[in-house]
Amino acid sequence: MTADNQLDVWEVFMQSKPGANYIHAGSIHASDKQMALQNARDTYSRRGEGTSIWVVPSSAIVASNPEDNGMFFDPANDKIYRHPTFYVMPEGAKAI
């Protein structure tokens, strides 16, 4: 008996309308790129949810580690000068 398989896992990203961000919709199984695209279409755009699809093999996704959250993300928290509200504008100035 051969080992059974359910094909590889792919991640599906959908764009809801032209110009919008691609958002993770979920996963599907497929053995090749064409099948992955078609399975994504048949699974995630049954209600007209999308105008464009990306599929990516799950194995190609690199995710950050929660243990690294401190060094990865906390240092950005005090860089308030990156936000427009940090700056004091003179009274009466318009369109800035």
Partner: peptide, 16 residues
């Protein structure tokens, strides 16, 4: 159904 579909999944993997 799972068993009947095994050859299809195997063929898809082999093609890939």
């Amino acid at each position: 159904v799972h068993n009947e579909g095994a050859w299809v999944r195997e063929a898809a993997e082999a093609y890939s």
